[in-house]
Simulated assay, not measured.
Amino acid sequence: MTPNPSYAVAANPVHHDGNSLHVLFAGESQTSPLHALGPKIYDYYLLHFIEKGNGTFRTEHHIYELGEGSCFLIHPGQLVSYVSDTKHPWRYRWVAFIGQDAHNIVAEAGFVDNHSVFTFIKEHSHIPTAISRMQEVFYTKKESAHMASLGYLYLILAEAQDVLSSQSRLTGTESQVQRTVKQMILYMSTQFAHPVSIEQMCDSLGYNRAYLSRIFKKETGLSPVTYLLKLRIDKSRQLLLERPELSIEQIASSVGITDALYFSRQFTRFCSMSPSAYRNRIGRKPGGSSQL
């Protein structure tokens, strides 16, 4: 027996005023047999999640037969059409969003090239619940609905990123070693201001230190210890010029080195002069960041 058609949509009560990311509306529908849209284009991103049923999604270059657990993202200006199955029509939820940062965010989530369609391999997806919560907060008509909808949108895109990155691993677009090294670089780039150690990073990433040191050296040419120290020295050089009111001890602490004497020795090792000499010499050059 074919379910009775239904349709509900809730719009964001907060007007889009050039926000970097903005959810326009969210909705749900039990479509009727052969329910069709397009061919047409949209001027916003429109993501659908199929809860039940079957149907066909078409772009200018591809045709996808999609069923339960599938998700497809329509990009602005993309010519598309989609139609529900005769016997088992789609029940789906959707969310529309726009904004200056939307393109970069969906690309970061993995929606690039032909990766605008995927089928979840998880037993349960949080996407339909997140879209449902969006509808609920929009119905309240509160100003806070805008912020809440962004939170739910990020949760949706985070789950999509998990699936799309998993699919990328299966196709071998990036090796596990390369991804792990990127994670190490990200960890050090965000944690260098704290007195973290390589051991702590290894524990955080869940790998043996010897293994991480070996793959990192192979990919970057530097050991993790040297890379982290160089990162800290590079940042300290910037602070020496831009913050003349800070003492050498304060700068050392600001880049995660608690021993000012050790900092001075390592700075001299990398820059062939002491921190004080560097500040005085470079800061007095024409165009220098500071004049002491």
Rank of each mutant, 00 (worst) to 15 (best):
E123L: 11
Q135E: 09
Q135P: 01
P128K: 10
M134A: 13
L153V: 02
P128N: 14
L155Y: 05
Y152I: 13
L153D: 03
M147L: 15
E143A: 02
L153P: 01
L150P: 08
A145Y: 06
V137P: 03
I127R: 08
L157A: 12
A148H: 09
M147K: 15
T140A: 00
A145G: 01
S144G: 04
S149K: 07
L155I: 11
Y154F: 14
Y152N: 08
R133N: 13
A158D: 07
E123A: 04
I127A: 03
E123C: 02
F138Y: 14
A130V: 02
E123R: 10
L153C: 06
S125I: 05
H146S: 13
A130K: 00
H126T: 12
A148M: 15
I131N: 03
S125H: 04
Y152H: 13
E143L: 04
M147P: 04
E136V: 14
P128Y: 11
I127K: 10
T140I: 05
V137L: 02
K142C: 10
L155V: 09
H126V: 14
L150K: 15
H124V: 06
E136P: 01
H146P: 00
A145H: 02
H126F: 10
I127E: 01
Y154W: 14
S149R: 09
F138S: 05
E123M: 04
E136Q: 08
H146E: 14
S149V: 13
F138I: 09
G151C: 11
G151H: 15
S149Y: 03
L157K: 06
M147C: 07
R133I: 04
I156L: 09
M147I: 15
V137Q: 00
M147T: 14
L150H: 12
F138D: 04
Y152D: 09
Y139W: 07
Y154H: 14
A145S: 09
S132T: 14
T140S: 00
M134F: 12
A158I: 05
Y154P: 02
M147N: 09
Y139P: 00
I131S: 02
L153W: 02
R133H: 14
L153F: 03
F138T: 06
K142V: 02
F138K: 07
R133E: 12
V137N: 01
A158H: 11
A158P: 01
L157R: 05
T140C: 00
M134G: 10
Y154E: 05
S125D: 06
T129E: 05
H124C: 06
S144V: 05
F138M: 07
M134E: 08
K142Q: 11
A130N: 06
E136C: 08
L157F: 14
I127Y: 08
S149H: 06
L153N: 03
Y154A: 06
K141A: 07
